[in-house]
């Protein structure tokens, strides 16, 4: 069995009457890429705070990189890289000064920092910005630099809290390429939270959080496969009518206002026949492959399907 990068048991965080995280048990294998997914307020950030020693759990135990974060927070922090949603850079300092400052906080000597700095700037195409103040960088560059800052000390475990929020697609891709390279080169484990579920499809494992509780966990491909072969989407003015009409043959759909989603288990589903039957009655009809978004939508149903996974 592989050692764990992160191991937490019965993790609970109570703020007054609110239980932000409720008996969360997670196991992130060493070197793996783990996605913690859920809407705003589902407890993702609180979980990251507890895992990274910034918040004390009300109940529960946590080990990160082998250290008990409650008893050895300093040692644990030495093995952790954390990229916050907001930039962790000093805007009044230059790019190089920021990385030298960050490196020194981890006890790295100037030569080591200089070497890694050159490497990181090269990778992100920021060499020409070396002596530029962070305030003058674009959002994408700042984010890239922030991630470079987070991995400067070669952490064993990297926490990424919504790392690509507000970035354009080109920068997002560059950042993912970089992270996957780091994982390959240094065997770094990554725990990611994100809204963009398609980004989490590259994860080895994902966990869905809702109201601080785990509502599903597994490999993305397994979770998607377990949901069904296809997703049938119907848009209509009379959702209730079609639920009644179609439930017997297609199963109970998920309803989002005027949109119905059916998970189709049958690989040889005859879409043509259905299309002919419905095309003049409904606003839109679509058959497509399921993705993580669908898994997430189904998991969020009170009578959730796919619990078998």
């Amino acid at each position: 069995m592989q050692a764990s990068a992160i191991e937490c048991r019965g993790l609970t965080k109570q703020y007054g009457d609110v239980r932000a995280v409720n008996e969360l048990t997670l196991n992130v294998a060493d070197g793996s890429f783990f996605g913690l997914l859920g809407p705003n307020g589902s407890g993702k950030t609180t979980t990251i705070h507890m895992l990274s020693t910034l918040a004390r759990p009300t109940v529960g135990s946590i080990r990160v990189a082998g250290y008990d974060v409650l008893k050895q927070p300093v040692q644990a922090r030495a093995c952790i890289g954390l990229v916050f949603q907001e930039s962790a850079l000093d805007r009044s300092l230059t790019v190089a000064e920021n990385l030298h400052f960050a490196g020194a906080l981890y006890g790295l000597d100037a030569t080591t920092v200089e070497q890694r700095l050159a490497e990181l700037l090269d990778l992100f195409d920021l060499e020409s910005k070396r002596e530029v103040r962070v305030a003058a960088l674009s959002g994408g560059m700042r984010r890239a630099l922030d991630i470079a800052r987070g991995v400067l000390h070669r952490p064993r475990v990297l926490f990424l809290d919504e790392p690509t929020i507000g970035l354009d697609i080109i920068n997002r891709r560059a950042i993912w390429r970089f992270i996957s390279r780091l994982r390959q080169e240094h065997g770094m484990s990554v725990l990611l939270t994100t809204h963009y579920l398609e980004e989490a499809e590259g994860c080895d494992e994902v966990a869905f959080l809702r109201h601080g509780q785990l509502i599903g966990q597994g490999q993305p491909s397994d979770l998607i496969r377990a949901l069904g072969h296809y997703i049938l989407e119907i848009e209509t003015d009379q959702p209730d009518y079609y639920i009644e009409q179609l439930s017997s043959e297609l199963g109970t759909p998920v309803q989002e206002d005027e949109r119905l989603l059916f998970a189709i288990q049958d690989e040889d589903f005859q879409f043509g026949a259905l299309q002919q039957r419905l095309q003049h009655e409904v606003r839109a009809l679509q058959l497509r492959k399921p993705d993580l978004n669908d898994v997430y939508i189904w998991r969020n149903q009170p009578t959730g399907k796919g619990e078998a996974a």
Binding site: R77, L82, A88, D90, F101, A102, L105, G107, R149
Partner: peptide, 14 residues
């Protein structure tokens, strides 16, 4: 509320 504090709170010292 700034970046520097983010760097400091996760740095490996008390």
């Amino acid at each position: 509320e700034s970046g520097v504090m983010r760097m400091l709170v996760i740095a490996p010292f008390s």
